[in-house]
Simulated assay, not measured.
Amino acid sequence: MKSNVVLMTILTCYFVVLGTVYTVWNLIDHGNVEWAGSTAIILSGGLTGFIAYYLAKTRKAQGGELIEDRLDSDIDDGDPELGEFSPWSWWPIVLAGAASLVVLGLALGFNFWISFLSIPLLIVAVVGWTYEYYRGYFAR
């Protein structure tokens, strides 16, 4: 994570210097500021600055050096438990299809009937995925 903080800090400095040079160059060459480019470059510096600050604060809150930063660590040292997943479950596919139909109905403008008819399917998919361990073969 230290390398990410250093990289984002370097990018912040680069974008701020580049934005300043770009703005001054436009003032000298054209006599006015080209607002789209100057704003985009300077705000890119602000964005990378926010990311660098967040990563630095997160690194400090986690105690400094992470497992990924140590040279003597193994791959298994940083292998956390990710959770329990159901490889047999069809509910995520049903949920993705229902959500895409809702968004499709909204995106097509006046075809709200697609969204209207697919909202019940969306609700059934969310409830089915939530309660899949409470019924059937894998009930607890």
Results as ranks from 00 to 15, higher is better:
Met1Glu: 01
Ser3Asn: 13
Asn4Glu: 15
Met8Gly: 01
Met8Asp: 00
Tyr14Cys: 05
Val16Gly: 11
Val21Pro: 02
Thr23Val: 03
Trp25Asn: 15
Trp25Gly: 13
Trp25Thr: 12
Asp29Met: 06
Val33Phe: 13
Ala36Glu: 14
Gly37Ile: 04
Ser38Gln: 11
Thr39His: 15
Ile41His: 15
Gly46Ala: 09
Phe50Ile: 06
Tyr53Ile: 08
Tyr53Asp: 04
Leu55Lys: 07
Lys57Cys: 09
Arg59Gln: 05
Arg59Tyr: 05
Lys60His: 04
Ala61Ser: 03
Gly63Cys: 07
Gly63Phe: 07
Leu66Pro: 06
Ile67Glu: 01
Leu71Val: 05
Leu71Pro: 08
Asp76Ser: 08
Gly78Asn: 08
Glu81Tyr: 08
Glu84Asp: 02
Phe85Thr: 15
Phe85Ser: 07
Trp88Gln: 05
Ser89Leu: 09
Trp91Phe: 10
Pro92Ile: 14
Val94Pro: 02
Ala96Pro: 03
Ala98Ile: 02
Ala98Trp: 00
Ser100Ile: 02
Val103Lys: 08
Leu106Val: 01
Ala107Thr: 00
Trp113His: 09
Ile114Gly: 00
Ile114Ala: 00
Phe116Tyr: 15
Leu117Asp: 12
Leu117Met: 15
Ser118Val: 06
Pro120Ile: 01
Pro120Met: 06
Pro120Arg: 05
Leu122Asn: 01
Ile123Glu: 15
Ala125Leu: 12
Val127Trp: 14
Gly128Gln: 05
Trp129Asn: 02
Trp129Cys: 03
Glu132Val: 03
Tyr133Asp: 13
Arg135Trp: 09
Tyr137Met: 04
Phe138Met: 14
Ala139Arg: 12
